[in-house]
């Protein structure tokens, strides 16, 4: 650490202490005011530490990052242990263990089957040994096989059959705007969202858009000639969609920033109420 870093760290530490003491004093009379004031100051410090990354990588960011990694890894470990293992597995596994962890035992004639994932889980832990590491592939195979089968039929239905049938749509008329003949169509040329022309144009754009988009995703045929042109229209429509998606997200992201700034100024500095 060079001199400048030391000075900056010292100033930040001093500010931290001031904030801690100030909050503890303002909360005096409340239970655990010293701990609460420390935690609130810590939250503000960590918020600023993460924001400092916008300037560049620095010791404060590194501290917040490493702390976050350690704390969150342990958090999920504890959650998983208490809610899944103790909350759901142990009550089905054995009466003795349920008694030890003070959870109600759920008797069932199929409870023995819950020993299988325990054995598979232990096989997974065999990775840590040199000679029996290959055993860990069995539980992995179970997971990959089961989910591959599940995804295979699930996506064939939701992303293929359902989407294909959604493309079947009338291009000249629909239930709310039955086809009234060319005369009526031409005499009613307006761009109102409810007009027949708008509906028809929209249906054509969707239909051709889907076809061109699919053609872009053809891999085993050269994209030349008409096929190439359709594929090019396909990528244009894809890009318009990605642009729209980008624009759509901007507002949501900015509101998140507003939320953090509110925390700093309202909860920590108490400048705004």
């Amino acid at each position: 650490m060079n001199r400048t870093t030391l000075i900056v760290v010292a100033i930040v530490a001093a500010l931290f202490a001031v904030s801690w003491i100030a909050h503890a004093v303002s909360m005096s009379g409340q239970k655990d005011n010293v701990v609460d004031a420390f935690m609130l100051t810590m939250a503000a410090f960590l918020t600023l530490a993460i924001f400092s990354f916008l300037y560049r990588d620095n010791p404060f960011y590194k501290f917040a990052e490493h702390l976050f990694v350690g704390v969150s890894a342990a958090f999920w470990m504890c959650q998983g242990f208490w809610s899944t293992i103790v909350g759901n597995l142990i009550p089905r596994l054995s009466e003795g263990l349920s008694g030890f962890f003070q959870v109600p035992y759920q008797a069932s004639s199929w409870n023995f089957a819950y020993w299988i994932p325990v054995i598979l889980g232990l096989m997974l832990l065999m990775r840590l040994t040199k000679d029996y590491g290959w055993l860990s592939r069995w539980p992995l195979a179970l997971i990959v096989g089961t989910t591959a089968g599940l995804n295979f039929v699930r996506y064939l239905r939701s992303d293929f059959i359902v989407q294909v049938s959604a493309t079947f749509m009338p291009l000249l008329s629909n239930e709310s705007h039955p086809w009234e003949g060319f005369g009526a169509f031409l005499s009613n040329l307006n761009l109102a969202a409810t007009g027949q022309l708008v509906t028809i144009v929209a249906n054509w754009v969707i239909f051709l858009g889907v076809i061109c988009g699919i053609i872009y995703f053809f891999f085993s045929k050269e994209h030349t000639g008409i096929f190439g042109r359709a594929s090019r229209v396909g990528i244009w429509i894809l890009m318009i969609t990605f642009g729209a998606g980008f624009g759509y997200t901007v507002m949501g992201r900015i509101s998140l920033l507003v939320g953090r700034i509110t925390f700093l100024f309202k909860d920590w500095l108490q400048i705004i109420s």
């Binding site: 590194k62 976050f68 990694v69 704390v71 958090f75």
Partner: peptide, 15 residues
Amino acid sequence: FVTQSQFAYVAAVNG
């Protein structure tokens, strides 16, 4: 392994 928390993971990978 880093951690099973979305943004902690991002913080570490960014670092």
